[in-house]
Each structure stands twice: as structure tokens, then as C-alpha cells.
């Protein structure tokens, strides 16, 4: 040890314990049909309380510290990845948010109650489907249906 006093034992918590980086960040996010919709690139934190998760956080929100109870309000994906790799911080308007209330399970992947196509963050998938892949002959062919 570092010579400091021994650590205090952590009391048992009343709910499931998750470490953000170990259990949530960079996991696959799957929709209700188990289709991947993105990776969990970051978490949005906000003050606890009613209506906390309703809108995007704004610049004039009061700064958070230990005096406020803070909760995870939404999962973030998309442009946040670039800033996690290269540093910096994207403007809040460019976060693709999935509200925590849609999460149904956290395991080796994070599962949602929605369909992926209903989420903003899959817009590139829909764009490529509508403009490129879906237009090629056979692009909507079911591989299980035979040739």
C-alpha cells in the first residue's frame, strides 16, 4: 500500500452497482430485436428530480458537485466518440441521446425497449439503406429465403 491509512470498507448498496467504464462505456447497444444500434460512447449526468431527463442539459444549468444528487439521464452515442478518441467536447446539440428509461438490461450488451429505426442515432444506417444499399438489386433479399 502507499503508506496511507487502510481503506474503509464500502457499505453494501441497496441496488445493483455498476462502474461506468467497466460495465457501460463502449458496450454494444442493442434494440428490442437485438439489432445493434450503436456503442455506448458516453453517459449524460444530470441532477436527480422530476423532469431532469426531459430536455437536453443547457449551458446555464447550475454546476454539479457533491451537494446535488446526480443520476444518469441518458446514454450518448455518435460524435461523442470522436472527442473521446481525440479529446475536446462536442456541443450538446450534437449528442445523440437515448434516455435511460428505455434501457431494459445491462449485461454483456445494453438492451433497449425501442426499435433501432426509431432512434435518431441510427440516421446514417437509414441514409445508407435508403440511398445506397436498399437501391441495389437484391438489397432487401432475405438470406434465409433462398436465392
Amino acid at each position: 500500500m502507499t503508506g496511507a491509512a487502510p481503506l474503509l470498507p464500502e457499505p453494501r448498496q441497496p441496488g445493483r452497482v455498476l462502474d461506468a467504464r467497466l460495465h457501460l462505456l463502449d458496450r454494444q447497444v442493442l434494440d428490442v430485436d437485438s439489432v445493434p444500434v450503436g456503442t455506448l460512447d458516453d453517459l449524460e449526468l444530470g441532477p436527480s428530480g422530476p423532469g431532469a431527463a426531459a430536455g437536453s442539459p443547457r449551458a446555464d444549468d447550475p454546476p454539479l458537485d457533491g451537494t446535488t444528487t446526480v443520476v444518469v439521464t441518458a446514454l450518448l452515442s455518435g460524435p461523442v466518440l470522436g472527442t473521446r478518441v481525440f479529446g475536446g467536447r462536442p456541443p450538446a446539440s450534437r449528442w445523440h441521446r437515448v434516455l435511460w428509461r428505455h434501457v431494459t438490461d445491462v449485461g454483456t450488451a445494453v438492451r433497449l425497449a425501442n426499435r433501432g429505426d426509431d432512434l435518431d442515432l441510427t440516421w446514417t444506417e437509414r441514409w445508407v439503406r435508403d440511398h445506397v444499399v436498399g437501391r441495389l438489386p437484391g438489397g432487401r433479399h432475405d438470406p434465409d429465403a433462398g436465392p
Binding site: 439489432v35 439503406r129 441495389l136 438489397g139 432475405d142
Partner: peptide
């Protein structure tokens, strides 16, 4: 490849 190409467009 078990999905339709349009379901795995990217």
C-alpha cells in the same frame, strides 16, 4: 450476413 443487406446497410 444473416441479416438482409438493407438491415446491415453500413
Amino acid at each position: 450476413k444473416f441479416r438482409r443487406p438493407a438491415q446491415a446497410a453500413r
